[in-house]
Simulated assay, not measured.
Amino acid sequence: MHIVCPHCGAVNAVLQERLGQHPKCGKCHQPLFADHPVELQGAAFQRYIERNDLPVLVDFWAPWCGPCRMMAPAFAQAAQQMQGRCLFAKLNTEADGQTGARYQIRSIPTMVLFRGGREVARQSGAMGAADIQRWLAGQGL
Protein backbone atom coordinates (compact mmCIF):
# COMPACT_ATOMS: atom_id res chain seq x y z
CA MET A 1 0.00 0.00 0.00
CA HIS A 2 1.11 3.57 -0.61
CA ILE A 3 1.09 5.87 2.41
CA VAL A 4 1.97 9.57 2.19
CA CYS A 5 4.17 10.76 5.04
CA PRO A 6 2.34 13.48 7.00
CA HIS A 7 5.69 15.11 7.83
CA CYS A 8 7.60 15.32 4.54
CA GLY A 9 5.04 14.27 1.91
CA ALA A 10 7.06 11.31 0.61
CA VAL A 11 5.06 8.39 -0.73
CA ASN A 12 6.02 5.15 1.03
CA ALA A 13 5.26 1.58 -0.02
CA VAL A 14 4.15 -0.41 3.04
CA LEU A 15 3.07 -4.04 3.15
CA GLN A 16 -0.53 -4.29 4.31
CA GLU A 17 0.41 -6.68 7.12
CA ARG A 18 2.87 -4.05 8.48
CA LEU A 19 0.26 -1.29 8.83
CA GLY A 20 -0.28 -2.16 12.51
CA GLN A 21 3.45 -2.16 13.29
CA HIS A 22 3.90 1.64 13.40
CA PRO A 23 5.75 2.00 10.06
CA LYS A 24 8.11 4.93 9.55
CA CYS A 25 8.84 7.06 6.51
CA GLY A 26 11.77 5.88 4.42
CA LYS A 27 12.81 9.48 3.77
CA CYS A 28 12.43 11.39 7.07
CA HIS A 29 12.08 8.37 9.44
CA GLN A 30 9.04 9.90 11.19
CA PRO A 31 5.95 7.75 11.92
CA LEU A 32 3.63 7.39 8.92
CA PHE A 33 0.58 7.37 11.18
CA ALA A 34 0.31 10.49 13.31
CA ASP A 35 -1.40 10.17 16.68
CA HIS A 36 -3.53 13.18 15.73
CA PRO A 37 -5.23 14.49 12.56
CA VAL A 38 -2.82 15.99 10.04
CA GLU A 39 -3.25 19.68 9.16
CA LEU A 40 -3.24 20.11 5.38
CA GLN A 41 -3.74 22.79 2.76
CA GLY A 42 -3.15 23.45 -0.93
CA ALA A 43 -0.94 21.05 -2.87
CA ALA A 44 -0.17 18.98 0.25
CA PHE A 45 -3.91 18.37 0.64
CA GLN A 46 -4.26 17.12 -2.93
CA ARG A 47 -1.21 14.86 -2.66
CA TYR A 48 -2.42 13.40 0.65
CA ILE A 49 -5.91 12.49 -0.55
CA GLU A 50 -4.82 11.31 -4.01
CA ARG A 51 -1.72 9.24 -3.24
CA ASN A 52 -2.80 7.39 -0.07
CA ASP A 53 -4.21 3.91 -0.56
CA LEU A 54 -5.97 4.10 2.80
CA PRO A 55 -9.19 6.11 2.99
CA VAL A 56 -8.73 9.70 4.19
CA LEU A 57 -11.35 11.45 6.33
CA VAL A 58 -11.03 15.24 6.16
CA ASP A 59 -12.60 17.64 8.64
CA PHE A 60 -13.27 20.97 6.90
CA TRP A 61 -13.36 23.53 9.71
CA ALA A 62 -12.54 27.15 10.71
CA PRO A 63 -11.10 28.60 13.93
CA TRP A 64 -14.09 30.92 14.51
CA CYS A 65 -16.60 28.02 14.33
CA GLY A 66 -17.80 26.92 17.79
CA PRO A 67 -19.13 23.50 16.69
CA CYS A 68 -15.82 22.89 14.87
CA ARG A 69 -13.85 23.56 18.06
CA MET A 70 -16.25 21.34 20.05
CA MET A 71 -15.80 18.46 17.60
CA ALA A 72 -11.98 18.70 17.38
CA PRO A 73 -11.24 16.48 20.43
CA ALA A 74 -13.73 13.83 19.23
CA PHE A 75 -12.19 13.86 15.74
CA ALA A 76 -8.72 13.41 17.29
CA GLN A 77 -9.99 10.56 19.49
CA ALA A 78 -11.55 8.81 16.48
CA ALA A 79 -8.24 9.26 14.60
CA GLN A 80 -6.37 7.42 17.37
CA GLN A 81 -8.92 4.61 17.50
CA MET A 82 -8.97 4.12 13.70
CA GLN A 83 -5.18 4.34 13.23
CA GLY A 84 -3.98 2.07 10.43
CA ARG A 85 -7.48 1.72 8.92
CA CYS A 86 -8.27 5.32 7.99
CA LEU A 87 -6.18 8.50 7.86
CA PHE A 88 -7.56 11.67 9.45
CA ALA A 89 -6.81 15.19 8.24
CA LYS A 90 -8.08 18.70 8.87
CA LEU A 91 -8.38 21.58 6.43
CA ASN A 92 -8.86 25.12 7.76
CA THR A 93 -11.30 26.67 5.26
CA GLU A 94 -10.39 30.16 6.43
CA ALA A 95 -6.70 29.63 5.60
CA ASP A 96 -7.42 27.65 2.39
CA GLY A 97 -10.74 28.87 1.06
CA GLN A 98 -9.94 27.71 -2.48
CA THR A 99 -9.87 24.04 -1.48
CA GLY A 100 -13.06 24.45 0.53
CA ALA A 101 -14.74 26.07 -2.48
CA ARG A 102 -13.47 23.35 -4.85
CA TYR A 103 -15.23 20.74 -2.69
CA GLN A 104 -18.32 22.94 -2.31
CA ILE A 105 -18.12 23.13 1.47
CA ARG A 106 -21.20 25.17 2.39
CA SER A 107 -21.32 24.58 6.15
CA ILE A 108 -18.76 23.60 8.74
CA PRO A 109 -17.81 21.33 10.28
CA THR A 110 -18.14 19.02 7.29
CA MET A 111 -16.34 15.67 7.08
CA VAL A 112 -15.55 14.26 3.65
CA LEU A 113 -14.31 10.70 3.14
CA PHE A 114 -11.94 10.20 0.20
CA ARG A 115 -10.81 6.96 -1.43
CA GLY A 116 -8.26 7.15 -4.22
CA GLY A 117 -8.62 10.92 -4.35
CA ARG A 118 -12.38 10.75 -4.91
CA GLU A 119 -15.09 11.84 -2.52
CA VAL A 120 -17.18 8.83 -1.47
CA ALA A 121 -19.18 10.21 1.47
CA ARG A 122 -19.92 13.48 3.26
CA GLN A 123 -21.36 14.37 6.67
CA SER A 124 -22.06 17.89 7.98
CA GLY A 125 -22.41 18.86 11.62
CA ALA A 126 -20.48 18.18 14.80
CA MET A 127 -20.28 14.56 15.95
CA GLY A 128 -18.80 12.68 18.89
CA ALA A 129 -15.99 10.14 18.47
CA ALA A 130 -18.34 7.13 18.68
CA ASP A 131 -20.67 8.73 16.12
CA ILE A 132 -17.75 9.35 13.74
CA GLN A 133 -16.70 5.71 14.06
CA ARG A 134 -20.28 4.49 13.49
CA TRP A 135 -20.57 6.72 10.41
CA LEU A 136 -17.26 5.34 9.07
CA ALA A 137 -18.46 1.78 9.77
CA GLY A 138 -21.47 2.58 7.63
CA GLN A 139 -19.01 3.50 4.85
CA GLY A 140 -17.35 0.09 5.07
CA LEU A 141 -14.52 0.91 7.47
Rank of each mutant, 00 (worst) to 15 (best):
G97P: 02
E17I: 00
A130C: 05
L15P: 07
N52R: 01
F114A: 01
V112F: 07
V120L: 11
V58S: 01
L32G: 01
T93R: 06
V120T: 15
Q21H: 14
R102S: 13
R102A: 13
V11E: 11
G20Y: 00
L57P: 03
G116M: 07
Q21A: 15
I108Y: 08
G9A: 09
Q98I: 00
L19K: 08
A129V: 10
H29R: 14
P23Q: 10
I132E: 02
H36P: 00
A126D: 07
D96C: 07
Q30N: 13
C68S: 14
C68V: 13
A89G: 04
V38W: 01
G100V: 08
C86N: 01
G125C: 10
R51S: 15
D53F: 11
H29I: 05
D35T: 00
P55V: 05
L87T: 04
L57G: 06
P63G: 15
K24T: 15
F88W: 03
Y48I: 01
G26F: 07
V56D: 06
P63D: 13
L113M: 10
A34H: 10
A126I: 06
A74D: 08
K27M: 10
A126G: 15
A101L: 09
A43Q: 12
D35H: 11
L87W: 00
M111K: 02
P31K: 09
G66E: 12
I132A: 06
L32T: 04
Y48W: 04
R115I: 09
V56L: 04
M71Y: 02
K24F: 12
C65V: 00
R51F: 11
F75R: 02
V56M: 05
R122E: 13
M127K: 13
T93S: 12
M111L: 14
P73K: 10
Q30G: 11
R122N: 12
E94N: 11
V14W: 07
Q81A: 15
A44D: 14
H22P: 00
